[in-house]
Design a binder for these strands. Structure first.
Length: 178
DNA sequence: ACCGTGATTGAG
DNA sequence: TCAATCACGGTT
């Protein structure tokens, strides 16, 4: 079945599982004209708690990282390089800071372009991903024949172990060849 | 390879 | 107060 809204419990799983599970689902937003836009998620990254030196929570609780300590299902959005909004979904249980960065869809490559194209900014930070807030996720029809993984992008500062950990995920689709 | 751009953070 | 950093993208 496709078109089912991802429930809160989906996000309360281990962050790697959530990152992989989001592949092939649709990110959905309300448009001004009342229509809904849906994009198939094709690339994600997992950020795994205070021990993960690439994760913002590795610095502990700060005003910015506080949202990552919440229950899974909230949105964590921040400005990067003064220009690009990054969209994350918080994972796991309260007190276990982790999040999944959405890096691309079948039509958009790159986390900064993704938010720009979909009009996502700070106003959705700290919000639950649900229909009422205008941003949610649904199961899709994409065929994930295989999930690939590799090092995350732009985290060379995190030390060899965490910088090379294969926490970036994408999938191949026999139809699109992606 | 280089740089724009500004929030966030920690140090002083 | 201030300076360094930075989960990027566009241009040279």
């Amino acid at each position: 079945m496709s078109g089912e809204i991802l429930k809160r419990n989906f996000f309360k799983q281990p962050v790697v599982k959530v990152a992989k599970g989001l592949l092939g689902t649709n990110i959905c937003l309300n448009l001004k004209n009342g229509k809904v836009i849906r994009h198939t998620i094709t690339e994600t990254e997992a950020y795994d708690g205070e021990k993960d030196l690439a994760c913002h929570a590795s610095k502990g609780r700060t005003p910015r990282t506080e949202v990552m300590y919440s229950d899974g299902g909230l949105l964590y959005i921040y400005l990067c390089y003064g220009m690009h909004w990054m969209l994350n979904v918080v994972a796991e249980e309260k007190g276990s800071p982790s999040a999944v960065l959405l890096r691309g869809t079948s039509e958009i490559n790159g986390p900064g372009r993704l938010t720009k194209k979909l009009g996502i900014k700070w106003h959705l930070n700290n919000r639950v991903a649900n229909r009422k807030n205008g941003l949610w996720f649904e199961t899709g029809t994409a065929i994930r024949s295989e999930i690939f993984s590799g090092p995350r992008i732009g985290v060379d500062y995190a030390g060899r172990y965490w910088a090379t950990k294969p926490y970036r995920f994408w999938f191949s689709n026999p139809k699109s060849g992606a």
